[in-house]
């Protein structure tokens, strides 16, 4: 099976199960492109979004505006430190800091388990916005290893991963190191113009 994505590029993109995409671009354009990938859930698919800068309540708004049923299909790991309440029943795992990578993995595991118990845990679109923030809290090697294990978990589970990075915030070597982990990359040249390259997807 594949994860079907409309609206990222001019054509329909189908990502292979288990693949992970890196979205590079400015903060807001990168986030919008990541949401373009996450908001196309169909069938039994669900979304787990890990947010490092914006609180869970903002994230709920993004998905609401995009017509996603946030009552049963969305789970959020909020590492922003925000405590703004979210609608009742929407699962949120809150962390004290974006530097708490163990807490982040634990939050993801709990949300995935929750979806599993509800019978829809095997097709999750996982988003992390953004890797640039993680790089402010931990060194490149630690972030690299974290992302590598995370994408391995995504591959093993047949999930879809979408991670954003703002290249302008880091040196070339760091960007090239992080880039190596992912199957594909969507480079947002400017709002609405996305170059997609790599493997693990087809376009039609």
């Amino acid at each position: 099976m594949t994860y079907v994505v409309e609206g990222l590029t001019d054509s329909t993109v189908r990502f292979d199960d288990g693949s992970s995409l890196l979205v590079t671009g400015s903060t807001s354009a990168g986030r919008a492109a990541a949401l373009d990938v996450l908001d196309d859930i169909s069938g039994s698919e669900t979304v787990v979004l890990i947010t490092t800068n914006d609180g869970a309540s903002s994230a709920v708004d993004w998905f609401d505006q995009r017509g996603v049923d946030t009552t049963v299909r969305l789970g959020i790991v909020d590492a922003s430190g925000s405590s703004t309440p979210v609608p009742d029943g929407l699962p949120v795992e809150r962390l004290g800091s974006p530097g708490d990578l163990t807490g982040m993995s634990l939050g993801f595991a709990k949300l995935a388990q929750r979806f599993e118990q509800a019978g829809s845990g095997d097709r999750i679109r996982v988003g992390l916005v953004s890797v640039s923030t993680l790089l402010m809290y931990a060194d490149v090697q630690t972030v690299f290893r974290f992302l590598h294990v995370f994408t391995s978990r995504i591959r093993s589970g047949g999930l879809l991963g979408v991670f954003t990075l703002e290249p302008g915030m880091h040196d070339d070597q760091t960007v090239n190191t992080v880039r190596a982990i992912f199957d594909s990359e969507a480079h947002v040249v400017e709002a609405g113009e996305v170059e997609l390259r790599g493997t693990g997807f087809t376009q039609s």
């Binding site: 990578l101 163990t102 982040m104 993995s105 634990l106 993801f108 595991a109 995935a112 388990q113 630690t142 290893r145 974290f146 294990v149 995370f150 391995s152 978990r153 093993s156 589970g157």
Partner: peptide
């Protein structure tokens, strides 16, 4: 190396990295 990496493996490995 880990064909069926589960959530437990994932969390434990991240803990070890940290």
């Amino acid at each position: 190396a880990i064909p069926d990496m589960g959530s437990g493996d994932f969390v434990a490995m991240v803990r070890d990295i940290e």
